[in-house]
Computed example of a mutant assay.
Amino acid sequence: MSAQKGKDLLLKVDSDGAGNFQTVAGLRARTLAFNAATVDITNTESAGQWRELLAGAGVKSARISGNGVFKDAQSDEIVRGYFFGGTQANWQVIVPDFGTVEGPFQVTTLEYAGQHDGEMTFELSLESAGQLNFTAV
């Protein structure tokens, strides 16, 4: 993957449950992180007492975080409603020249901030809440 503009990474949500994804926010900074926990199966017979891991075991998770400005009042309302309702929804993260990650996420952090001479900003975190699918470009 060659160098890409950070602004091209998009965060979208299926707000009507019908597979119609819409961009919800003007994110100025964003991060997509994947994690896979390991299961240690080291025992007294492990060669040289080196750690051994159980292949394919453990919990996989993903986290999306970002900050910016909401693109409109409807976007703000959708995300705020998901946070206060503890709602899980299908989200898409589109990474240019890489692919699309799609699946259920829950809004786990929603922070608002603002300067007296600037716009209102927010910080947002989403945690995966089920199996994610990846579609390569």
Rank of each mutant, 00 (worst) to 15 (best):
S2M: 06
S2H: 10
K5L: 09
K5N: 11
K5D: 10
G6F: 08
G6S: 14
K7H: 09
K7P: 00
D8E: 09
D8W: 07
L9D: 02
L9Y: 04
L10F: 05
L11T: 02
K12T: 13
V13A: 14
D14R: 06
D14M: 01
S15Y: 14
D16K: 08
G17T: 05
A18S: 09
A18E: 08
A18I: 00
N20G: 04
N20V: 10
N20Y: 04
N20E: 12
Q22A: 13
Q22C: 08
T23G: 10
V24S: 05
A25D: 04
G26Q: 15
G26W: 14
L27N: 02
L27C: 02
R28Y: 10
T31Q: 10
L32F: 14
A33L: 05
A37N: 14
A37V: 00
T38P: 00
T38N: 05
I41C: 05
N43Q: 07
T44I: 13
T44P: 04
E45C: 07
G48V: 11
G48A: 10
R51D: 02
R51W: 03
R51T: 09
L53Q: 05
A57L: 04
A57C: 02
K60N: 09
S61P: 02
A62P: 00
I64W: 14
I64D: 08
I64Y: 15
S65Y: 07
S65H: 03
N67H: 11
G68E: 09
K71W: 14
K71Q: 14
K71P: 05
D72K: 11
D72R: 07
D72S: 07
A73D: 13
A73G: 11
S75P: 06
S75Y: 11
S75W: 15
S75Q: 14
D76F: 15
E77A: 15
I78N: 11
V79K: 02
V79P: 05
V79A: 06
V79H: 06
V79T: 07
G81Y: 12
Y82I: 03
Y82Q: 11
Y82G: 03
F84K: 13
F84R: 13
G85Y: 11
T87G: 10
A89D: 09
A89L: 13
N90Q: 08
N90H: 06
N90P: 02
V93T: 03
I94R: 13
I94Y: 05
G99S: 02
T100F: 10
T100P: 04
V101G: 00
G103D: 05
F105K: 02
Q106K: 15
Q106M: 15
V107Y: 08
T108C: 07
T108R: 08
T109F: 01
E111T: 14
E111W: 07
Y112G: 05
G114W: 01
G114L: 01
Q115K: 11
Q115W: 02
H116L: 14
G118P: 00
E119Y: 00
E119T: 05
E119Q: 12
E119W: 01
M120S: 03
F122A: 01
S125E: 15
L126W: 12
E127I: 04
S128L: 04
S128Q: 04
S128N: 04
A129W: 09
A129M: 08
G130L: 01
G130I: 03
G130W: 12
Q131V: 03
N133H: 12
N133P: 01
T135W: 08
V137I: 11
